[in-house]
């Protein structure tokens, strides 16, 4: 399931694990550069109002991801 699907259908906040990346390659590359990788444990903390960016925490980092970017991130619930 993509991170976006999860955020739209399940309860937030939630602890998740990244399984893979797919889609637009430059977005996947930038997601990596931001420090995300397969097996990374992340916490979906919330979403900005008006269906804005998703807020994700991993380790000591906080990241805001737009819908298009969250769509490239595949996750599974922990």
């Amino acid at each position: 399931m993509t991170l976006l699907d999860y955020a739209q259908t399940q309860i937030i906040p939630a602890d998740l694990e990244i399984t893979d990346f797919k889609g637009v390659s430059v977005i996947c590359e930038r997601l990596h550069e931001m420090g995300l990788h397969r097996g990374q444990k992340i916490r979906l903390i919330g979403r900005a109002p008006l269906k804005g960016p998703l807020i994700v925490q991993f380790g000591t980092s906080f990241l805001a991801l737009r819908a298009e970017e969250a769509e490239c991130t595949l996750i599974q619930a922990q």
Partner: peptide, 11 residues
């Protein structure tokens, strides 16, 4: 083309 946002939120 694609525009991305992907913003780091500093402490």
């Amino acid at each position: 083309q694609n525009s991305f946002f992907m913003m780091e939120l500093p402490l």
